[in-house]
């Protein structure tokens, strides 16, 4: 339960961090360490070098404009929960953050670290996909942006290239007319979810984004979710929610166990009801 020996560097800026990452293929970035720490302690991961980016001020920014919020990768779940960052989602992100793991974990765990870890059961993976967020990824070669739903490609597998890190998260402003619902099922409070449902429904614009998450691989992201509401998204979307379509989507994603599908559908239904409440 003690990590294998590793070297440790605290780069003075982002470029220095990227250079260390590029120079050592087995280097691991650590921020809050709430995902990597357990894996190091269990010796499931044994990097030669751990590059601690937690001191980089450039990754601790939080700026909002009219259209979007830009969060540096080092913003913690507690920063969002407590409202130390601006909010363009009218409380949606605060609610998600407040229910991630435990307070002692939220005080160090970061939004960028959680995404980089790409655990299918992690909250931000599903919530940010539903909110339509995008990521800035940076390497020595430059920066690129990617939608969150394109970033997570499988269990613990992200689209990050070697030598690349998550630099910032761009969250679009939630429309005044858009409803938000988020639900998850955990066997124990604070532990990994077995099912996550996240919905962003805008009856005025007749649009809906729906995410079915914690399915052990990349979440199901339905960007145009009219089919889940009988073909159109209107004010009566709660009544029109079609559990059979949800079940089909989940089955198509490879979940053969009817009980698990039932849990996912029920959790999604809860999210829809929360949005409509």
């Amino acid at each position: 339960m003690k990590p294998a020996p590793f070297s440790y560097e605290r780069p003075r800026d982002l470029n220095a961090a990227l250079a260390m990452l590029a120079a050592n293929g087995s280097a691991k970035i650590i921020a809050g360490g709430q995902s990597l720490g357990p894996m190091l302690n269990l010796r499931l991961v044994q990097p030669e070098l751990v590059v601690d980016i937690s001191g980089l001020a450039a990754l601790k920014r939080a700026e909002s404009s009219r259209d979007e919020l830009v969060l540096g990768a080092l913003v913690t779940h507690a920063d969002i929960e407590d409202g130390r960052t601006p909010d363009v989602t009218r409380g949606a992100m605060r609610g998600v953050a407040a229910n991630i793991a435990y307070r002692a974990v939220r005080n160090r765990g970061t939004i960028g670290g959680s995404l980089s870890h790409a655990d299918p059961a992690a909250d931000w993976v599903s919530a940010l996909a539903a909110l339509g967020a995008r990521l800035t990824l940076r390497s020595l070669a430059g920066a690129r942006t990617l939608a969150v739903e394109a970033f997570v490609v499988g269990a613990l597998e992200s689209a990050l290239h070697a030598g690349e890190i998550v630099e910032a998260i761009h969250v679009p402003a939630r429309a005044v007319s858009a409803h938000w619902g988020y639900a998850k099922s955990c066997r124990k409070t604070g532990e990994f979810a077995h099912a996550i449902g996240a919905v962003l429904v805008d009856p005025a614009a007749a649009t809906a984004r729906v995410v079915i998450g914690a399915i052990d691989t990349a979440p199901i992201v339905v960007t145009d979710a009219a089919e889940l509401f009988g073909g159109r998204v209107g004010a009566d979307y709660k009544q029109r929610f079609d559990a059979r379509i949800a079940d089909l989507l989940i089955a198509k994603a490879g979940i053969n166990d009817a009980v698990r599908r039932h849990i996912h559908v029920s959790v999604l239904k809860r999210a829809v009801h929360e949005a409509a409440a």
């Binding site: 921020a31 809050g32 709430q34 995902s35 357990p38 894996m39 269990l42 779940h77 229910n99 991630i100 793991a101 435990y102 974990v105 939220r106 765990g109 970061t110 939004i111 960028g112 670290g113 959680s114 995404l115 980089s116 870890h117 655990d119 059961a121 992690a122 909250d123 931000w124 993976v125 613990l156 955990c186 604070g190 532990e191 990994f192 979810a193």
Partner: peptide
């Protein structure tokens, strides 16, 4: 992966 709730 035993971690808790997707903490990063």
């Amino acid at each position: 992966f035993a971690k808790r709730g997707g903490a990063g």
